[in-house]
Design a protein around this nucleic acid. Structure first.
Lengths: 359, 359
DNA sequence: AAGCATACAGAAAACGTTTTCTGTCGTTCA
DNA sequence: TGAACGACAGAAAACGTTTTCTGTATGCTT
C-alpha cells in the first residue's frame, strides 16, 4: 500500500538509487533537473520513506529514549517538554519509559531501548548508579537529568540549588528583612544541603549573622513546614521572613502563620522553592525560586544530540540556574513587577512557543 | 558490534532461519532440543534482536504514537501513564509528540508518526476533527482520548461528566444539604453542560427543587469561582453547600467564603471537580470528583491494542466514570473514610503498581 | 588529439530479520 | 510394503532503503 522508491523509480524513469539520492539530500552528485523531476513525482505520489528500512541500513533512527522514574512526578513533564521541544527541529522523536524507581525495571527499560532503535538515552530523575555499566556497554550516548547525586557526575544536567537559595535570601534582604528564617529539607538530601549552604552563604554576603535558631529542619511535607513555622513563631524574637526549601513546606508555614493570627506577607514574608503548580494557584500566591526543569530538559537534549553527532564523549556536569518568581507572599511591591513575565505559566508558555534550536 | 542471528547460527551449527524460528516463538515446528540449544547460545552471546530489521520484514513495530496537545496540561501525564502501564506487559513503547493545539503541527505529527514505525496512534486532548481524513487514509488504528467533543465520536474514550456531577450532589445531599449551589464552567463547553445536567438531574433524583439563583456561571478560573461565591453569599437564603465544576473555582469559592467570615466546611461545604494535584495539598483539602484520567489512558491503550490485533474496526465511544474523593471541604465525618484509599495519591500509586493487563 | 578527471546514472550488494519454498527422513496407514 | 504424510531443517527470497562498485559520456588539460 505505501509508495516505495521503486514505484517512484518506475514512474519517473530513473533507477532506485538515483531516486534515493535525489530524495535524501546525500552529497552524491545528482543533476538538478533529475532531482527536480524525482521530487515532483515523489510528492505527487505522496511518498513517505519507510524509516524501518532506512534505520536498518544507516543504523540511525532519529529517535531517542527517555527513562523517567515516573511521568507523574511533578518535575518530569516539564523536563520532557524541554527535551521534546529541543529535539523537534531536528526531527527527533522521544520514546518514554517509566522505571518507578525500580532498578530492575530500569534495567529492562535500558535493554528494550538499546535493542530498539534509539540513537541515545536520557535518564530523568534517575539515581541508581549501578545501571551505569549496562549503559556503558551499550555504546549509546546518554545524559542524566536529575537532582539527587552528591558528587558531580559526567554527562549530567542538574539544577543549581545553591544559587537558587541565594536568590531567595537576596530578595528578602533587599526588601529590608534582617531576621530571615529557613526551613530545610531532610538532612540526607543533597538538594537540602545545597539550599542550606546557599542560605548561609547569602546571609553572610548580606552581612547578616547566621542564627541557628532560625534554621529549622523540615521533611519536604506540609506538616513539616507547619511544625517548623510553629517553632519559629514561638521564638522571643520573631523572624520577619521565612524561606522554605520547597513550596509544600512554604504552604504549611503560611497556614501556621495565619492560624497564629499573623498575616502573610504583612507580618511575615514567605518564599518557597520549586515553583510547583499550586504556588501560583493558592492565595496568597507563593513567591518562589523556580526549578529550571524546562531548561534542564532542553540542555540535556542538546548535550545528547551533540554526543550523537560527534560520537559519544564524556562531558562534565552542567548546572542550570533557576530564577526568582515574585508573587504575593514576599510582600514585594506589586507595581514593581510585571506578573505575566514573572509568573511561570506565562514564562513557560513563552518558552514553549519558541522552537528555535539555537536558543 | 551487536550480535546477529548469523553469528548464533554459526556458533550453534544451525541455519539462520532455524535460529530465527527458535528465538521468535513462531508456530513453525522446531524440535525442542534444537530450540533449547539455540536459546542457550543466544543467551550466552547476549543476543538482542534488531527491531528495525524485524519491523522491515513484519511491518509491525511494537510502538505506538501518542499525540497530545501539551504534556504540561494537567490531565495529560496521568493519561500517558495509563497508556504506558497498559502497554508495558505487551512490550509496546510509546512515542510522544506535542501538538500545542495547532492543527498544522498535529498534521506534521501525524505524518511523522505514520511514516515512522508505529502500529497505532492515540490522540490525547485532541479536538480538531479536520485532521481525521489524514488518519483515515493512513489505515493505522487510532483512538481519541479527550473531553471536548459534543457529539459522540467513534474510537474515543471520554469521561462521564454527567455521572461525576451526580456523585458530588448525591454526596452533599447524603450529608443533609438541601440548598446546594453550583458554579458552572463557561457555557460553550460540553464538559460544563454535562456537569450542569448531572447537577440538575441528581437534585431531581434527591427530590430537591432546582433553584436558578443557586446555579452561577463561572469561567474555570479562580476569579470566576471567587466572584460566583460572592454572588451566592449575597443571597438572602444562603446555600449550605457549593459544588464547583472544577477545583480551581472551588478554591476561589473557599477563599470567598472564608473572607466573608464563614468557615469551610463548618458553615458551607464545598466540593470541586477534577481532583487536581493542589486539591490534596491546600488546607482544607478539597473534596472533589476525580477525572478518571489514568483509567482513560488504560482504556484507550486497550482499545488500540485490540484494533491492532484484529485490524482496525470502528468502535463506539466509551465513557469512563470518575469517583468521589472525600477530603475535608465537604464536612463528611473523617472517621467514616480511609484517607489512604480515597486520596488520589494513594489510589493512583496502587493502580500504578498493578501491571496486570487484564485489569 | 590523446589522456584524464568529473559528473552523473544504473547494477549489485548490503543491512538483519522473517517467510516461502525445497528437501529429507522417519513414521503411519492401507 | 509402498504410498502418503508429518516433523523438521536449510536455501533462497523478500522487506525498502542506502552505499559501493561499475560504467559512460562530457569537458578540460596539455
Amino acid at each position: 500500500m505505501p509508495v516505495t522508491l521503486e514505484e517512484i523509480a518506475r514512474a519517473s524513469g530513473f533507477s532506485v538509487p538515483t531516486v534515493s539520492r535525489a530524495l535524501s539530500n546525500s552529497n552524491y552528485p545528482v543533476s538538478s533537473a533529475t532531482r527536480q523531476a524525482i521530487i515532483e513525482v515523489a510528492q505527487s505520489l505522496g511518498y513517505k520513506p519507510n524509516l524501518a528500512a532506512r534505520s536498518l541500513r544507516t543504523d540511525q533512527t532519529n529517535t531517542i529514549g527517555v527513562i523517567a522514574d515516573d511521568i507523574l512526578s511533578p518535575f518530569v513533564p516539564p523536563i520532557l517538554r524541554g527535551i521534546q521541544d529541543y529535539l523537534k527541529p531536528f526531527d527527533y522523536l522521544s520514546l518514554i519509559v517509566n522505571s518507578d524507581w525500580d532498578p530492575e525495571i530500569e534495567q529492562d527499560a535500558i535493554d528494550s531501548l538499546v535493542s530498539r532503535p534509539v540513537d541515545g538515552i536520557i535518564f530523568v530523575e534517575y539515581s541508581h548508579l549501578a545501571v551505569n555499566k549496562a549503559l556503558q556497554e551499550s555504546k549509546k550516548p546518554y545524559v542524566f537529568v536529575h537532582r539527587l547525586f552528591g558528587a558531580s557526575v559526567q554527562n549530567s544536567v542538574v539544577p543549581d540549588d545553591h544559587y537558587g537559595a541565594t536568590l531567595a535570601v537576596r530578595h528578602l534582604a533587599s526588601l529590608g528583612h534582617k531576621r530571615i528564617a529557613y526551613i530545610n529539607g531532610p538532612e540526607g538530601w543533597h538538594t537540602a544541603q545545597q539550599r542550606l549552604a546557599g542560605y548561609k552563604d547569602e546571609l553572610a554576603a548580606q552581612g547578616i549573622e547566621f542564627d541557628p535558631a532560625l534554621a529549622q529542619p523540615g521533611d519536604w511535607e506540609y506538616e513539616g513546614g507547619y511544625a517548623a513555622a510553629q517553632t519559629l513563631l514561638a521564638l522571643d524574637n520573631l523572624p520577619t521572613a521565612i524561606f522554605a526549601a520547597n513550596d509544600t513546606m512554604a504552604l504549611g508555614a503560611i497556614t501556621a502563620i495565619q492560624e497564629a493570627g499573623l498575616s502573610v506577607p504583612g507580618d511575615i514574608a514567605v518564599v518557597g522553592y520549586d515553583n510547583r503548580e499550586f504556588a501560583r494557584i493558592v492565595r496568597p500566591r507563593i513567591t518562589t525560586v523556580s526549578m529550571p526543569v524546562y531548561e534542564m530538559g532542553r540542555t540535556a537534549a542538546e548535550l545528547l544530540l551533540k554526543q550523537i553527532e560527534e560520537t559519544r564523549q564524556d562531558m562534565p556536569e552542567i548546572k542550570i540556574k533557576g530564577h526568582l518568581v515574585v508573587r504575593e507572599t514576599c510582600g514585594a511591591d506589586a507595581s514593581q513587577r510585571t506578573p505575566e513575565t514573572l509568573d511561570m505559566g506565562a514564562t513557560t508558555r513563552r518558552i514553549l512557543l519558541h522552537k528555535d534550536p539555537d536558543q
